[in-house]
Design a protein around this nucleic acid. Structure first.
Lengths: 232, 232
DNA sequence: AAAATGACTTGATAAATGTCAAATTAAGTG
DNA sequence: CACTTAATTTGACATTTATCAAGTCATTTT
């Protein structure tokens, strides 16, 4: 494990305040791996032997049932995933695959759990992270149940805009068919939803989004921190 | 706070192994309240000043947006709710109301957080509980995105059956319109879905469910622990 | 018990969303 | 660049789900 990665990981919220010795204990069994795009990292149902940290690239979390598949979320640097399964010593509920060339650090779950039991600062940080994840899923669930697909798209665009520079023009960060799946619709439906946003000043060419009439889009989307603010 | 309640609360997984002094510290500021049905306990967006424990009755967690409302879950004795918001010192993401006459214990969030920082056993238990809640929401989200309303109903019946005695006959525990909302459909749609399950041996009269052809229903529902087993 | 209220069901219809196939565009490859 | 492949879009259509209105059923109130 090169020191440069170590420093990066150390700066993550969940590792930031723990004792050096404990951090080293976790890092001892950790290893970095580089993956090309479209590589399966984990499969739902398997036991959660590793906690993962995305250092570069991006990783899709997805779920399957009865031949169907849906994108649950996309994890970007620098963040952890599969924290809950690690802590509970349980099975993965979601599968993961790389979307681009990605660097991922794998931390043995048993080490994470052991240190968790010894280092209160780490435990505190894990809880905060977990609470954050929980709230993110709740928000997502609210969005799915309370909004139509058009409204979900409109709000996604506004969130994406806020996440970047807040300017009228920005880029989509994932493929449209993944976006469709994440928003709980088919690619065809997304394509039509994009056209339906035209009267609200939205133009999407390739991956470039332009929001010409911010107010109109906001009026349609009706964003609320209770669903749309990741920090709320 | 009567001792009888205290003993009940003490036996909850999240309080079970903590130090007596810390448990007392939390109980000192706690109080029990009895509510009639249909009383609003908390409103989404408010700051999470209390963690709640349902001692008797049942509490609906629901969310609203743009004039719409959806049932997120129903909490039954003895369990906590609004743990994540308490830990994060954040705002409630969901509202809560009693469905029946209910007894609820309210623990000041600041006390919970203080003890959390001092008592490692408690912290450990909180994390486990939170991870459990997280996984429950993920399962729910998977179900919403991967299954049709008919499949959701079929699986709900099987889960409900497993939760009770596993026998062919059992009772629905909530109103049908709440069930519909929880499953992400309208009451009318639920009513029709129930009829559509007839060929699979399902009869529902009032709140009584009969599953005459278990195998047929299972074949339709295709339950998986990754979505349907609360303990998985 | 009669009346009133609310839950549930049913039918008719509309809207939203999904499916399939084909056309188009974009991206990657030799 | 020409070729191949994959992603996206479009059109036609099917299915699912929601909406509205009316009716039925059950429960509570008086």
């Amino acid at each position: 494990m090169p020191d440069s990665y170590k420093a990066e990981i150390r700066s993550l919220a969940i590792f930031e305040h723990m004792a050096d010795a404990n951090f080293e204990a976790i890092m001892r069994g950790a290893y970095v791996q580089n993956f090309p795009p479209q590589v399966d990292l984990i499969t739902e149902g398997d036991t959660a032997d590793f906690m993962h940290v995305v250092i570069s690239g991006s990783v899709e979390l997805f779920a399957t049932w009865n031949g169907r598949e849906t994108t649950m979320s996309v994890v970007r640097p620098i963040s952890t995933f599969i924290l809950a399964a690690t802590i509970k010593d349980a099975h993965y509920l979601m599968s993961a695959r790389t979307l681009e060339k990605s660097r991922v650090i794998m931390l043995p779950s048993s080490d994470v759990r052991r240190v968790f039991d010894e280092d209160h600062k780490f435990a505190r940080a894990v809880v905060t992270e977990l609470a954050q994840c929980y709230r993110a899923v709740v928000k997502n669930s609210k969005e799915l149940k309370l909004r139509t697909s058009l409204e979900r798209l409109a709000n996604h665009l506004l969130r994406q805009q806020a996440r970047t520079n807040g300017a009228a023009n920005f880029e989509l960060t994932i493929e449209k068919r993944k976006l469709a799946s994440q928003l709980g619709m088919t690619p065809e439906n997304l394509s039509r939803a994009i056209k339906a946003l035209r009267p609200y000043g939205v133009t999407i060419q390739g991956t470039t989004v332009q929001i010409a009439k911010q107010d109109d889009l906001v009026q349609l989307a009706k964003p609320t921190p209770l669903i749309d603010d990741p920090a709320f």
